[in-house]
Design a protein around this nucleic acid. Structure first.
Lengths: 111, 111
DNA sequence: ACAATCCGTAAGCTATCGCTTACCGTAAGC
DNA sequence: GCTTACGGTAAGCGATAGCTTACGGATTGT
């Protein structure tokens, strides 16, 4: 519990291919806006806008050095998303086990 | 590795609030379309369309009994998403550690 | 055979998303 | 002080997402 508030924007942020491509390029370390845009098929302002979304979702953080803005992945939010999916997986497995058990019980009764 | 192909639609599917609400109601066990729609602020066809998206993303499975369609969470895909985020978290932590080490080295050199 | 239940699909509309171009502010270098 | 590099923001546009209503197909029960 207590994962309600900040996660929806994070999941929404992960929906866009460009944003996922940005995150992929940040996995190995921080990069500037220009560096990111150079390796992507969209313009620099587009990357800047997507970084704004990623920052609002707390998926990345910025570190400014002169005029350069170095963006990095925020591991905490990634961990929160992972935990949310972990709980969902756990619940789904539990529900599946219960379903199988019920079916087994049903077979026993009608045997 | 090997998580490239099916995950993008799954992440995109998790972006919509209605679809996340559907998944939330499936955590405790399978439900029919009508049952899901009854607890949501949208129409039944809307739920049906969202279930189609979730099914295409392999996030849910269907089990048909007569005219009823029981939907359940597909734990395998949830696990795949979790693993992807796990790797991303791991890489991001590694990059951060390397960054800290470099900064430390830099301080030592200029001291 | 007929009525009722359950659900998927088609058509259409509105809102939002993501991109581009153009512009402006800020910090470093000569 | 002026120029150059770097990047955030505004305006505008085309494409897409998600919803609604209306319809049709399939199964169950009488």
């Amino acid at each position: 519990m207590a994962y309600a508030s900040p996660l929806p924007p994070a999941f929404a942020a992960l929906a866009d291919p460009t944003r996922r491509a940005v995150l992929e390029r940040l996995r190995k370390g921080s990069k500037t806006v220009g560096e990111l845009a150079a390796g992507l098929p969209v313009s620099r302002p587009a990357v800047s806008q997507q970084l704004k979304v990623l920052r609002a979702a707390a998926l990345v953080t910025v570190r400014q050095v002169g005029t350069r803005h170095y963006f990095s992945i925020n591991p905490a939010t990634v961990l929160d998303l992972r935990a949310y999916l972990d709980e969902m997986w756990h619940d789904a497995m539990g529900a599946y086990a219960k379903h199988v058990a019920d079916a087994e019980c049903q077979r026993g009764r009608t045997r």
